[in-house]
Structure formats: structure tokens, C-alpha cells
Design a binder for these strands. Sequence first.
DNA 1: TTTTTATATTGAACAATGTTCATTTCCGCA
DNA 2: TGCGGAAATGAACATTGTTCAATATAAAAA
Lengths: 201, 201
Amino acid sequence: MGRRSDHSRDELLALVLDTAEKIVEQEGIAALTARRVSKEIGYSVGTIYNLFDNLDDLSLHVKARTLDALYAHIRAVPMGQDVEQDFLALNAAYFDFLSGNPNTWGSILERVGADGRPLPDWYLAKVALPFSVVAETMLPLFGPDGRDRADYAAHTLWCGVHGIAVMAMEDSLEVVGNHSAREMADFLILNFLRGLRAAKA
Amino acid sequence: MGRRSDHSRDELLALVLDTAEKIVEQEGIAALTARRVSKEIGYSVGTIYNLFDNLDDLSLHVKARTLDALYAHIRAVPMGQDVEQDFLALNAAYFDFLSGNPNTWGSILERVGADGRPLPDWYLAKVALPFSVVAETMLPLFGPDGRDRADYAAHTLWCGVHGIAVMAMEDSLEVVGNHSAREMADFLILNFLRGLRAAKA
DNA sequence: TTTTTATATTGAACAATGTTCATTTCCGCA
DNA sequence: TGCGGAAATGAACATTGTTCAATATAAAAA
């Protein structure tokens, strides 16, 4: 078969991404293969490679969608309470998103693929966005001239929450045990912030 | 070729594990293939499968060795100062180990392989050991009747440190930026502990 | 010492993967 | 109507994990 007009290039791109996302969400990133996607959309393997450089590229675009969704999700959280309340709300939204998208989000937390090649800038920018929300939330604790220190504290804290999330996903490790990861993250947040406040006083 | 007497079964096991560990440390977990190991030790592929169930099983045993080494490393840290000092010492030892074994340790932090099959108990036990040291260190802050709460705090904190370590390993994400991950973890530890102390007072 | 038994070792074989690219087919345009 | 360029194909190649019948040899028996 040769050239078709079933879908425009953009439609095809969306079709592939939708399908890939569905596969990852339902069966995990390991189930994402070029042949599988091509079969599901009714095109041949080669078509996937007309649209993406390689499988890593495709999975990176799937991850990018998930990052977009996460950003939208935490952007929708009402803010403006005191710092503690804001962070707890952020955390709730984060774990809410995580439990709703365990496989797609899990594929991001894994540091896999890319064979050591650096991640492209457009992707790094998407990773940075959710962090920026956290940094914003931290700002009141340091005042407008404390941007750098607020940034640092925000990064530290959110890497910490991230660590709990990772552990929770590999429930097999039983590190989190029967505790709720969400509560654990709350506990980390509250004590970290209290520590920061105590340091100022 | 048939039966040989070059190595006993145990010698062969050690030979395979040594070789596999070397490969993972030098080139990362992705470079660990059955054929590669068999070639390096001068046996055929089949021999690997005489010794291990499959590749996952082999890599699990390599990871187990790394966990043993980490446990020994942090066990050697002198303890008994105040809680803050002890934790900072633990943290220093942890990041020291991490920077000395980035690939082997990184392969543990990744949650990969095992296709969703649960990890075997003997492996989970090895994962729990380093955590137990952390829990021990936390105990003085809660007193002898506060074991459970100390455990919980220790798990929370160390998952947090773990998150920073993961982020630091994927330096490509630039989340940690030019900050030292070690310092970041120190910062998290100190403020978390200060928060705990402030909550008691 | 010779024969037999048991088993450690082999490597060909199979299925599945990512990736390439010459070939084919068809859309759009003159 | 015919033509040029591009989209779509799928066979082909290299590599992977994994299996298992065949085989060579050490150990035991005769």
C-alpha cells in the first residue's frame, strides 16, 4: 500500500500518541512497542518511524503529555492560604494525580531509556513547570528578596515528596508499609516547613 | 563440549556475579546481557541459565550485592552523637557510597524489570536493612516508648533523601541544578528534625 | 582397567524486539 | 491524462531472552 489520505499528518500524530498513551496507562511502559502501536492504528511499523525518531522519542512525547496533564492538574488547585495549607493542597493534588495515572506517571519517575543521551530542552522545560508552582508556593516564607532560598527549599522539599512517591509506587518494596504515602508526604512537608520557621525565629 | 571441571558450581556463581557486577558498574544495567556475561567468562549462554532463573534473577542478585555493600558502608559510620550529627554522618556515608557506585546503586533506585512480579523475600530483607539503621538513629528523639513514631519519621525522612538522590542521578533533569545533592539532603534532614523538635516543645 | 551412569555444558533454534530503506502506491497538480 | 514527489509499506538485519535435545566428560560401578 502507498500513500493514503485516511489521516493528515497531525491526525496521525495524535492517533499514535493517543494509542501509545492508552497502552502505557493500561499495561505499563514495557508494553509500548512499535509493532504494537502500528497494529492498533492499522498502519505498518515504518509509519511510526516516519513520525518519531525512535521508540525513545515516542515514549518521551507520551511522558510530555503526562507532564502537561499534571501541570494542568496542580494549576487548578486553589491557592492563597498560608504556606502550610497551600503545600498540603498541592500534595493532595499530586497524589490524586498519581493514583489516577500510576503507569504514565510511573514511567516518568523511572529514569530509563535514552541510553545516557541528554533529554531535549523542550522536555526539560515541561519537567520544570510543576516545580515552578512549588517554588511559588514557598515564596511567602522567604519574602520577595528570598527567591533563591525559596527556590532551594522548594526543590529540596519536592524532591523529598518525589522520593516518597517513588517508594509508594514500588509498593513491593514495602518501605512505605501500610502507611498512606500521601500522609507520609504531609508529615514530611509539615515538619520541614516547621523547621524552616523555627530557623527564622 | 560437555562437563568440565574448571570451576565448582560456587566458583562459577561467583565468577558470573563478579563479571555481571563489573559490567553494570562500568556500563550500566542496560549493558547486562546473558550473552555478554557468558562470553566474558568463557562459557556458553546456557550456563547462565543453569545458575539463574533468568536475567531478572541475575540482576537481582547483583543488586543484592550492592545492598550488602551499602549496609556494610553505613554500618561502619561512627554513631552516638546527637541525632542531628548522626543523621548528617549517615547522609555523608550514603552519598559517598552513591558517588562511588553510581551505576550499581542507580540500578537499584530504578524500579524496572520484574514485569510486575513481586520481589522475593530474601531481597526485600536486604532492602530493609539500611532502613533499620536510619530508624535506630531516629530513636533518641522519641524515646524508647516511641519506636513506632521514630520508625515512621525515619521512613519519611529517608524516602525524602532517596528522592533527592534519584533526582541527582538523573542530573539531566537539572532539578537539583548546580546545587550539591548532598547539601540538599543535609538541608532536608536538618529542617525536618528541627520541625520534629519544635513540635515537641 | 573398563563400563556405565549421571550431569554439566553446549549452541542451534525460536520468538520478539528496534530500526532501516528500497520499493510501491497513490494524492495533488499541471 | 499523466507525472513528480511523498507517504506508506514490509521484508530484512542485528540483537535480545530463553529453551532444550544433544553431547562430552567426570564420577561411580563393575
